[in-house]
């Protein structure tokens, strides 16, 4: 449970970045925060997580918080697993190094992480934020730098996490639109307003019974169609080794690319 009430923040010589923000976030209803560059999303997330104090206003949050900052540092001196152990100990929760495996971390684990790739650093940051059953998870651009496979895994992880924890997330990749049951809000001119994704910018069509038009019909052939549908985050009809999908046309290319990466072969593509 997260309650942000009347939070104001401004930087010197500038207009207020946050001008009395109210935001509530509960388990089961993830909140996706949108906003333009420099609109103060990261500032709000820092305050919500407890990394910074607001000039005025109040924030109530659970005891154990997972926070992924924008640009998680790629140069930590400790090996990834040692870092995760320390952070878990500071939170007072068991360490969860298996999250590195799930996210497909491919960097060194027991050697100091002199300089990790952007993606691997992001995976360490995600593992430290999501591990240990936090009551609130605050993620600033969690998909930044992730490969397609890790991005899908993260989506599935977030769905699981948000069942038990309040989840507040920003995203520029459009993947957050596929978090089922999420509440979409937008930060503009220092205030947070409801911002339900319209059909035009719904790049997902996740589980949508009535796919917005124009739609594209896709038939994929793969070993385990149900697992692939889950990985792609779309609802589809499975017959034998085939997966029949209908997705918004704007989303079709990205989905095909993801499907090919997952080892599917494309049998048919056409207008629905």
């Amino acid at each position: 449970m997260l309650r942000v009430e009347g939070v104001r923040q401004r930087y010197r010589h500038g207009p207020p970045v946050l001008a009395g923000v109210d935001l509530a976030c509960d388990p089961g209803v993830p909140v996706v925060l949108a906003g333009e560059n420099g609109s103060g999303k990261s500032t709000l997330l820092r305050i919500a997580a407890g990394a910074a104090r607001p000039a005025s206003g109040s924030v109530r949050r659970p005891a154990v918080v997972g926070y992924l900052p924008d640009r998680f540092p790629a140069r930590l001196r400790m090996p990834a697993e040692v870092y995760l152990r320390h952070l878990a100990a500071i939170r007072g929760v068991p360490a969860a190094p298996e999250l590195l495996d799930r996210l497909g971390f491919s960097g060194p684990r027991r050697e100091p992480m002199a300089r990790l790739s952007k993606g691997n650093a992001q995976k360490v940051g995600l593992a430290q934020a999501l591990g240990g059953d936090p009551g609130l998870v605050v993620l600033d651009e969690p998909w930044a730098g992730l490969d397609a496979e890790a991005a899908e895994t993260l989506l599935a992880l977030l769905v699981t996490v948000s069942e038990r924890a309040s989840l507040l997330v920003t995203d520029h990749t459009g993947r957050a639109a596929r978090i089922a049951g999420a509440r979409h809000v937008r930060l503009a001119e220092g205030l947070v307003r409801e911002d339900p994704p319209g059909p035009a910018d719904s790049r997902a069509g996740a589980g949508a019974v009535t796919a917005p038009l124009p739609a594209t019909a896709i038939v994929l052939r793969c070993g385990d169609p149900e697992a692939v549908a889950q990985r792609l985050g779309v609802a589809g009809r499975c017959t034998g080794d085939r997966l029949h999908l209908q997705v918004p046309a704007a989303r079709a290319d990205a989905l095909l690319l993801d499907a090919l990466r997952l080892g599917c072969s494309v049998e048919m593509v056409g207008p629905a």
């Binding site: 820092r46 997580a49 407890g50 990394a51 910074a52 005891a63 154990v64 918080v65 997972g66 926070y67 992924l68 900052p69 924008d70 640009r71 998680f72 540092p73 140069r75 930590l76 952070l87 500071i90 939170r91 940051g125 430290q128 605050v138």
Partner: peptide
């Protein structure tokens, strides 16, 4: 710690006090 790393530590510790 660099400032971003520090912010992660502060959140994990539940505030700047610890």
């Amino acid at each position: 710690e660099d400032p971003i790393q520090r912010s992660v530590t502060v959140v994990a510790a539940g505030g700047p006090g610890p």
